[in-house]
Amino acid sequence: MNRREFLKRTAIAGIAGGIALTGLGKLKPALAATAPVGTMIDLTKCDGCAGRKLPACVEVCRETNRDRFPRPRPEDIQPYWPQKKFEDWSKKQDVTNRLTPYNWTFVQKVEVEYQGKKATVFIPRRCMHCDNPPCANLCPFSAQEKTPEGPVLIDPNACFGGAKCREVCPWQIPQRQAGVGLYLKIAPKLAGGGVMYKCDLCYSRISRGSLPACVEACPREAIAFGTKEEMRRKAHVRAAAINGYIYGEKENGGTSTFYVSAVPFEILHRALIAQKQVPGLPVGVENYLENVNGLAEGLLIAPVAGVLAAGLAVYKGMKGDGDNE
């Protein structure tokens, strides 16, 4: 057992003890029995639903979640004082070629050149549901939650719309709508900006045992859903078969979404950036919390150092001339 491991265990033991004492740690049995879930997206199968007006996944996502879309009153949509701007998508609900509060998944189309051949790749995009999501961890009001099943959820009743989650997300997934949410009840002119919206992997559907709507709707079975480990295996098997690449397994410290592509993701990322499409696919992107988690060790040592230093100071004071009053 090395030092890092010891500190981690100490922290976990301390917190586990604390939780046991408060009784808040009782896991709901239903959740404890559920293994984390994930998806595998096969880019060699997705064709962006050629011939249809809208990709099936996008269309069904909009239908499924329609009731949960924001419904702001026009008079509530005000600039974010002292700024002049505000983020309002309520008049652009038809936009389907990017993420918006009214469009939680979309399909990117990107032209690439790989091994001397030109190819068109279609990439369904939405929340990756990270293992250690910076968006949820860094939310100043804990309005986001990483569920034991894997999906990351935003509570629209607790969200203040500061959009910090979007900034710390490597893919800028959450999207803001002004004129809705908690901030209207406090000081809507001065603070808050609305509510953030994104994919929740159809949490209510998967809790009932159904598939996420996009998975069910895909005519080419390009999106698979199952336990996370099953999806990881599936992605590796598929990648080995086509001599391809995986994205989402290591990115941001690991996610619940595994993309498989015959074209390297570095090339896809460069092409997306060159064609001014967001979000990109930065390979190996580091988790926002990586840096401070290194510092956390110092926080666990600080109390020990405090005890030792105090002991030393008292000892020296006693040996001294009593000037230390």
Binding site: V292, L295, A302, G306, A310, A313
Partner: peptide
């Protein structure tokens, strides 16, 4: 955020050290 968060951690290390020092020192 990455700068202010790092600053928050570093300052917290300093505060925790001083607080624990204070408690132990005066208790002893």
């Amino acid at each position: 955020f990455s700068i202010t968060l790092t600053l928050h951690y570093v300052a917290a290390i300093w505060l925790v050290f001083a607080a624990i020092f204070h408690i132990v020192y005066h208790s002893l």
